[in-house]
Write a protein that binds this DNA or RNA. Structure first.
Lengths: 287, 287
DNA sequence: TTGTAAGCGTTATCAT
DNA sequence: ATGATAACGCTTACAA
């Protein structure tokens, strides 16, 4: 029986997954669940299975680390995490092999998209269309990716000698369509604003576009919008969304391989980042 | 340590989940993953956690039942399953508490939408709009729900004295958008056909609509389409999709409660079906 | 009531 | 090599 095997040997053939650390995002989230799906397929090929880490074991509350030690998980994947959560910090500092497809911190191996490149793709595209004033809509900074993309924007704009006003930056109050809609209405109310925006998440972008339309604006004719992620639905949206495509399949795949390697050949943990390429896919929310 | 607890007591505080038994559907599928999410939240509240059942344990292949005995799971949820799979049959016949949000079979407790009612809602709606000829697009019969909805259609049409030709029934060759697109093109090629169709899955319906449009048909003006599921995206599709809404949150919730009750008060298993209400939500793919 | 020992199924160690 | 046995950490049953 497998619990006896785990008890007696050191290996559980199990990988813990931290998924909803920063928000109430569930399996139905197209971006994160796709990474998880890809990761899962790959680790299963190697004989491992995944377990969602919860802060409860039977009936008592546990820290992530205690939970993992209890379960004797062989490694853990952080699909998304809050770098300020003491639970996460403790886990990452421990000797348990850990990989993340989201956050970056000391002792943590990360496999993430090249956000700098993603934003650069956008800015170059906007510049190539003749824009001087280039806007951005971010999501909450509790997610590293939103923070990073905004930083990349600031750096790149400066570096390229483009000026931007703080009002050209809008931050949505959540991760979903509804919060995007509010942003769309807000942008529509601006008397003076950029005519192109990067919205650093497709699902927020959908909301922004509909919010804009609700106020009578046409996308892309009056305002152009570029999304970020390229989730399945983006191509079926109307108008089909121009977006920065993240390769979720590859992110999950590489994270799995990397983690398995760490488990099977343990070494000193250190901060290392693997960047997965992004590309811009031009559809119809830009002209 | 938890493996010691499992070994020594009979309880593992773990519920096995069978998810991809009939197709390669992953976490990113909006309908099933939402049921799973809701189920998961509810069982976690009671101190249980979920484990995805795979046919591999470490390195050896196992049947579902052997896997469950090995893991000593307290119960299992079948999110979707193939009733002809001997692995499923064996598991359901065993003494392990089992619940399904999909299939129906002896010794199995099922919590599913009222498909008969769902189809009736559609037919009544079509009739109320003056239609005599009423079509349907199904998905593969390996999924019980598709089969059942089509049966409901045949029964109800007969019962209501409406006639239908076998050519008014189209079955898609898969679960996705692409297979729907092919169906849309096919329907567009028909010289004689119904002017309204129920497509018994939203994601297939999206494909059908785009396939129709690709051949120059306007939805809803030339053909009206009703979907089934009401996934998140249906309201953001263009045109927003008229559809039969399934209450995935309630399905997952009730399945969780029911299974926990079976685990904590074991009784003889028997076939029982809990029907969860559906409703029609009228948007713009119908006039 | 509190404490002690047996046992869960597998692996790993240590004799033979 | 092959086989017996201790150890894994926790629960539970039984004794004091």
């Amino acid at each position: 029986m497998s619990s006896a095997r785990i008890l007696s040997s050191k290996k559980s053939w199990t990988i813990g997954v931290i998924y909803s650390d920063i928000s109430l995002i569930g399996f139905e989230h197209p971006f994160f669940s796709h990474i998880l799906q890809s990761f899962k397929s790959q680790v299963e090929r190697a004989g491992y299975e995944i377990v969602m880490i919860v802060s409860k074991l039977g009936n008592s509350e546990l820290t992530y680390l205690d939970w993992c030690r209890n379960k004797k998980v062989d490694g853990v994947l952080i699909v998304m995490g809050n770098i300020n959560n003491p639970n996460i910090i403790e886990l990452v500092q421990s000797d348990i092999p850990t990989i993340s497809t989201d956050i970056v911190m000391p002792n943590l191996y990360s496999v993430i998209s090249d956000d700098y490149k993603g934003v650069e793709l956008y800015i170059n595209y906007a510049v190539s269309k003749g824009y001087k004033r280039i806007g951005i809509v971010s999501g909450p900074f509790s997610a590293r990716s939103f923070y990073n993309r905004l930083e990349a924007y600031r750096n790149l704009m400066n570096q390229k000698g483009l000026t931007y006003a703080e009002t050209d930056i809008v931050v949505a109050d959540g991760f979903g369509y509804d919060e995007g809609f509010v942003v769309g209405e807000f942008i529509a109310s601006l008397k003076d604003r950029p005519d192109i925006y990067l919205v650093t998440s497709d699902v927020i972008a959908f909301g922004v576009i509909r919010g804009l339309e609700s106020k009578g604006f046409n996308v892309p004719n009056q305002i152009e919008i570029v999304g970020y992620d390229d989730i399945d639905f983006s191509k079926h949206f109307t108008p089909p969304l121009t977006t920065i495509k993240q390769d979720t399949a590859k992110i999950g795949f590489q994270a799995a391989n990397q983690l398995i390697q760490m488990i099977e050949n343990p070494t000193q943990k250190k901060q290392t980042i693997t960047h997965v390429p992004v590309e811009i896919v031009i559809r119809e929310t830009t002209k």
